[in-house]
Amino acid sequence: MLKKILVILLLSGLSAHAVEEANIKKVMDAKVKKVLGILKNTKLSQKQKEHKSITVMDKIFDYRTMSQISMGKRWKTLTAKEKNQFSRTFEKKLKYSYVDKLRLYNNQRVITKELKKLKSNRISLEYRIIGKDKNYKVVYLFYKKRKSNQWYIYDVRLVGVSIIQTYRKQFSEFLKTKSFKQLLKSL
């Protein structure tokens, strides 16, 4: 009976596109576990591993919002077409970077730390990767979408470094001297 409930819970959690507040930890834990399972699976090729881990994590990331934040004030000046173009390119870049980091994975243990409610519409969820000679802190930041009450990831902090903040700085620095088109190209 308990097993059945667990299976149903897991399935319902995984199939949903985003998550509700009560489920965030459960869903994320399941996803992290699943990715670790994929990475440890010796039967899969590196390519398959990468592809599979991305599909596990994909739906919970809000790439559009990430793109918007990373562009900062420039976002409003872009046309709808440019916005789409940029979002797509940036999404690819983020995924590539994520996959590249996965390649470094070498059977490290991952521990769930705490979930913190920062504001009514912000939650952070912390993980610790137990590395060979050092532990790495990974924090996923969620925000609540107003319409649907679902939670999405809008930033990830690796050892205290915000990925989106880092891109934001780089983009604003880049756009000071170069054009938006050049930015798209260099991504």
Partner: peptide, 13 residues
Amino acid sequence: KDALDLYPFLKDI
């Protein structure tokens, strides 16, 4: 690989 320009990137990180 995540850097557009290495120096400001490393500085920021």
